[in-house]
């Protein structure tokens, strides 16, 4: 049991890393042959980086687009971030003071994340224009996240799991014989689904996270009258300027 779980976890992590590396390699191999930031754009690289940061942390464009969607999305992503942070204590040997301190916040964040997800799912199924562009895969990702969240909350509040055993397992993955996992079904489900999520990131729309960083409309500064940027493939064109 523990051995299987350990293998799956390592495998999923490897898929995540390799899949992401491959995807990023494809992205980076392709040039951005023209200057296409959505204007107005910052004039400097630093400014453009700030713009991406603002999008990443505050979802600035989404805020301008749709306030309820922004709120739900924020609740989910922020909740998830805090929950993940809280999970650190299952892998670090001696949790630092701040990690201990945020535990209650982390529990609250679990609920926030679930509320956000439920809103997103309801919106996806109930708003006709969103439903129209929804495919099975879009619902599946939400259901997967909801299932991970639910099983997590159940282990936190109802069917407590032997945390120390979990910790022992996670820190012993790399050994030939990983230590015993607690045999609680809810917990095992939680772990299994989380493993699945890790594995599908590079092959699904979860790529939107790195996508934001590499999106030329957001990360390019506005400097086209000052800089030229002919792509290698464009330099073969006849005429001046290449």
């Amino acid at each position: 049991m523990s051995a299987i779980a350990a293998i799956l976890l390592v495998l999923a992590t490897a898929m995540l890393a390799a899949g992401l590396a491959y995807r990023l390699a494809l992205w980076l191999a392709a040039p951005v042959p023209l200057s296409i930031p959505t204007m107005p754009a910052p004039l400097t690289r630093g400014g453009a980086a700030m713009r991406v940061g603002r999008e990443m942390l505050l979802f600035h464009s989404l805020f301008r687009a749709d306030k309820p969607l922004w709120a739900a999305s924020m609740a989910f992503h922020l909740g998830l971030a805090l929950v993940l942070l809280r999970h650190l204590r299952y892998v670090v040997a001696v949790p630092p003071a701040w990690l201990v301190a945020i535990q209650p916040v982390g529990r609250l964040a679990g609920w926030m994340m679930m509320a956000g997800l439920l809103f997103l799912l309801a919106r996806r199924l109930l708003v006709p224009r969103v439903r129209m562009v929804t495919r099975t895969g879009d619902v599946a990702v939400l259901v997967l996240l909801l299932a991970i969240g639910t099983s997590g909350l159940v282990t936190t509040y109802l069917l407590h799991t032997d945390i120390l055993a979990v910790k022992a397992f996670l820190t012993s993955i790399w050994r030939a014989a990983p230590e015993g996992l607690p045999p609680d079904p809810t917990f095992l489900l939680h772990l299994l689904l989380a493993i699945l999520l890790l594995a599908i990131v590079p092959f699904s729309k979860l790529l939107h996270a790195p996508g934001l960083v590499f999106s030329p409309t957001r990360n390019q500064p506005d400097g086209s009258r000052r800089y030229r940027r002919p792509a290698r493939w464009a330099r073969t064109l006849a005429g001046g300027g290449q």
Binding site: A29, A65, H208, L212, P216
Partner: peptide, 19 residues
Amino acid sequence: LERSRALRVFLDSCVKCGA
């Protein structure tokens, strides 16, 4: 796709949020 990173990133990143 090989000529434009924008095209690749845009095709990969949409979450169908409908914004």
